[in-house]
Nucleic acid binder design. Structure first.
Length: 495
RNA sequence: GCUUCUGUAGUGUAGUUCGGCCAAGCAUAUGAGGCUCUCACCCUUAUGACCCGGGUUCAAAUCCCGGCAGAAGCACCA
């Protein structure tokens, strides 16, 4: 990190916009900040970037697209940070600090660095930005601008009728930086301060003020915000303030994941998603529910580093890191999806207890017991549909830790298979599959990351497992048990 | 279109500051083999990259120039 020595102490800030729970993409910003703070023994500030968001007009005309503060997200964000094990020294709210922005905005007007503009957005872009011309309002006197500023604050103008523009220069070579708006009017209500304020700052302006006031030394932001550096720097230069350092990281694309707090919010409101824990939100809350370890997410994000190039994120990186952690602590159980019944005849015992290891890599953890009983020399068990479709008549397979059976007849139409007892000893020639007794088992539902729910049966020992501790269904994958209700186990699929 | 940034194996990253130790490391993915009463884990092994073209130099992934490709910004969003 550059220029650490220019400052007594490294101070950085997390600046989430509270429009929903933090998701896997936001976590990169959080983790990188946290790692730098730890490395340089600095201070981390949580600064809710809760300005007003979209105007009242947009909220009415296009509520789907509108961006606004969601009251519950303040807590959702804190919860996510806690899960990530990120601590901060203090909390600020932008919505508490409007007076600061007003004060410095007025200074800029007084010093002829800003003016009140009455152009519409379209007009300004087409006639002035694109043609590098100054709009008529730009040359109003300071006195006039101050009067109009008072009228803006006093409510004489409605939304979109007046804005404050910074005089960065209409001939600036970068069209993105020509006389940017720094303050605008919003009639929308804010969850924390209601309609107390009518005039709200734009992101870059508010940060120019706050980063200075709260003493931030290093600012980490995505490459989508590089132009904001210019505005902050412009204002710091003008006030002759000590500057913070900017650091950037590139954008990540998340194919097959819709990573948008706004979009998640809409789907939750419509009832399409089951709250912020729905795996399709990819929120930190949902990852926790799935049994993803925060250390795995941290390591994955850290692997990406500060690279400026656009990255296509592969969720397998996360799964792989997570598996390294949970594989050696997740107990194993039998689970059969879309069960198909198998009747095994001519078994030479009345009852037999299979004793598979809870965790093969740690045999000292012991075994679990699965009992099967025969009636008139026949036992009934279930296997998964997937395994059933791979069976062939007269072929021998092994029911893991139990017996070998010789397939007799396969009738997948009626989900019924018959077989004959073959032998008991392990023989590696035979394919090994998992099974569940017909008499003692437990229904299991699994919620997949795409929102689908799958049904199956699990071994009876699942009735006595702790919730929220990942387990592995052998030859299937890892799941996180969420609740045992009405004799049914409900799990989130991990990976 | 204008502005800025970035280009190392399928994917991501290390190395680029101060050229040589990089015929390029690591992770993940994939193939093969081993271990195992899971097609998990673990072990062994294989595959696979410096965007292109010039230039400087004894020497370039690293410096310079020119292409090309990708990303971001050009909102009264953050």
């Amino acid at each position: 990190m550059p220029n650490v020595d220019n400052y007594d102490k490294v101070v950085m800030r997390l600046a989430p916009y509270p429009s929903g729970a933090l998701h896997i993409g936001n976590a990169r910003m959080v983790i990188l900040n946290d790692e730098y703070i730890k490395k340089y023994d600095g201070e981390l500030i949580l600064f809710f970037d809760d300005t007003i968001g979209s105007s009242q007009l947009l909220r009415e005309q296009n509520p789907e697209k509108a961006k606004y503060v969601l009251p519950e997200s303040y807590d959702l964000i804190k919860e996510g940070l806690e899960w990530l094990d990120v601590t901060y020294s203090k909390i600020y709210y932008k919505s508490d600090r409007l007076q600061h922005y007003y004060e410095y905005c007025e200074s800029l007007i007084k010093e002829n660095m800003a003016y009140i503009c009455f152009c519409s957005a379209k007009d300004f872009k087409e006639n002035y930005i694109n043609q590098k011309k100054e709009c008529p309002h730009r040359n109003h006197t300071i006195q006039r601008n101050l009067e109009e500023w008072d009228r803006m604050l006093g409510g004489s103008y409605r939304e979109t009728e007046a804005v404050v523009r910074l005089k960065t220069g209409m001939d600036h070579k970068d069209p993105a930086l020509r006389d940017q708006i720094i303050m605008r009017i919003s009639e929308a209500a804010h969850p924390r301060v209601g309609t107390k304020y009518l005039v709200w700052p734009m992101l870059e302006f508010s940060w120019a003020i706050d980063d200075y006031l709260i003493g931030v030394t290093h600012i980490l932001r995505g490459s989508d915000l590089v132009k904001e550096d210019y505005i902050e720097d412009f204002i710091w230069n003008h006030f002759n303030w000590k500057k913070a350092q900017f650091l950037h990281y590139g954008r990540i694309n998340f194919p097959d994941m819709k990573l948008s707090k706004t979009s998640a919010r809409n789907k939750i409101q419509k009832g399409e998603f089951d709250g912020w824990e729905d795996p399709r939100t990819w929120s930190l809350q949902s990852l926790k529910k799935r049994g993803i370890r925060p250390e795995a997410l941290r390591a994955t994000l850290l692997d990406l580093g500060m690279s400026l190039s656009g990255i296509t994120f592969s969720v397998n990186w996360l799964y792989s890191k997570n598996q390294n952690i949970i594989d050696e602590i997740s107990d194993r159980y039998f689970y059969v999806e879309n069960p198909v019944k198998v009747e095994v005849k001519n078994v030479p015992f009345k009852e037999k207890i299979a004793e598979p290891l809870l965790l093969p890599t740690k045999a000292e953890k012991g075994t679990r017991k699965i009992k099967v009983e025969s009636e008139e020399g026949t036992i009934s068990i279930y296997i998964s549909q997937k395994d059933a479709t791979n069976l062939k008549e007269t072929k021998i397979i092994r029911l893991k830790d139990l017996i070998n059976i010789n397939i007799d007849k396969i009738d997948l139409q009626s989900d019924h298979i018959t077989a004959n007892y073959e032998s008991t000893e392990l023989n590696r020639e035979y394919p090994i599959i998992q099974w569940v007794p017909e008499k003692h088992n437990i229904p299991v539902k699994i919620l997949k990351p795409d929102g689908t729910i799958l049904n199956g049966l699990g071994e009876v020992n699942l009735k006595n497992i702790p919730m929220n501790k990942t387990i592995q269904f052998e030859r299937y994958g890892f799941v996180n048990p969420i609740r045992l209700e009405n004799g049914e186990l409900f799990c989130y699929f991990t990976h």
